[in-house]
C-alpha cells in the first residue's frame, strides 16, 4: 500500500462523514452531490503525493475538500439558481398562513443547508467548518484569514442563520 493510500485511509476514517456534510453544504441535488463527493475523494487521494506535513492532516483535508468544492461550484452548469448572497441578504421566507405548524427537523435541516448554499464560497466554508465544531484559529489556518476576522465572520454568519432558521422553525432558539 502506498503512502497516499495510507494517508487517504486515515483521512477518510477521521473525516469521511465531515466531507459528506461539507458536500451537502455545496450541492443540493443528490446525484450531483455524489459526483462532487467522489471528486473530493479523488482530489484528496491525488493530493497526498504532495503532502509534506507542514500542516496537520485535518487542515490539508479541509483545504483540498473546500478548494475542490468551490471550483466545482464555480464551474458547475447547474449552479444554485438563486446564486450567492451576503449574509445580510439571506432571504426571509414569505409568511404562510400555516406558519403555526412547526417545520420538522428534516425541514429545518434543509432550510439551514439551503441558506448555507446561498452564501459566497468563503463564508460558506467558514460556517461549514464552524458547524463541524472547529475553533476560529483552526478555521483561520484553513481559509487564510486572521483568527479575529474569522471570529467576527462566524458571529455575523451565525446570527444571520439563526435568525433565518428561527423564522422557518419556531423551536430553534
Amino acid at each position: 500500500m502506498s503512502s497516499s493510500d495510507e494517508l487517504y485511509k486515515e483521512a477518510i476514517g477521521a473525516f469521511g462523514p465531515a466531507l459528506e456534510r461539507l458536500a451537502r453544504g455545496y450541492e443540493a441535488d443528490a446525484e450531483m452531490r455524489r459526483d462532487l463527493l467522489q471528486e473530493i475523494h479523488i482530489a484528496l487521494w491525488r493530493s497526498f503525493s504532495g503532502f509534506d506535513g507542514r500542516c496537520s492532516l485535518r487542515t490539508w483535508v479541509y483545504r483540498v475538500a473546500h478548494n475542490r468544492a468551490v471550483s466545482y461550484v464555480r464551474t458547475s452548469r447547474f449552479r444554485n439558481e438563486r446564486g450567492i448572497v451576503n449574509e445580510s441578504e439571506i432571504e426571509t421566507p414569505a409568511p404562510r398562513e400555516d406558519r403555526e405548524l412547526e417545520l420538522d427537523r428534516a425541514q429545518a435541516q434543509e432550510r439551514l443547508l439551503s441558506l448555507i448554499r446561498q452564501l459566497p464560497p468563503l463564508n460558506r466554508q467558514i460556517i461549514c467548518l464552524h458547524l463541524e465544531g472547529m475553533d476560529a484559529a483552526s478555521i483561520a489556518e484553513i481559509v487564510g484569514l486572521s483568527t479575529s476576522h474569522v471570529h467576527t465572520k462566524v458571529h455575523r454568519l451565525k446570527e444571520a442563520l439563526i435568525e433565518d432558521v428561527r423564522k422557518g422553525k419556531s423551536h430553534v432558539r
Binding site: 491525488r46 493530493s47 490539508w60 483545504r63 475542490r68 484553513i142 487564510g144
Partner: peptide, 8 residues
C-alpha cells in the same frame, strides 16, 4: 492536485 492542499 497538491496545490489544493497547500494553499489556504
Amino acid at each position: 492536485p497538491e496545490e489544493l492542499g497547500r494553499a489556504a
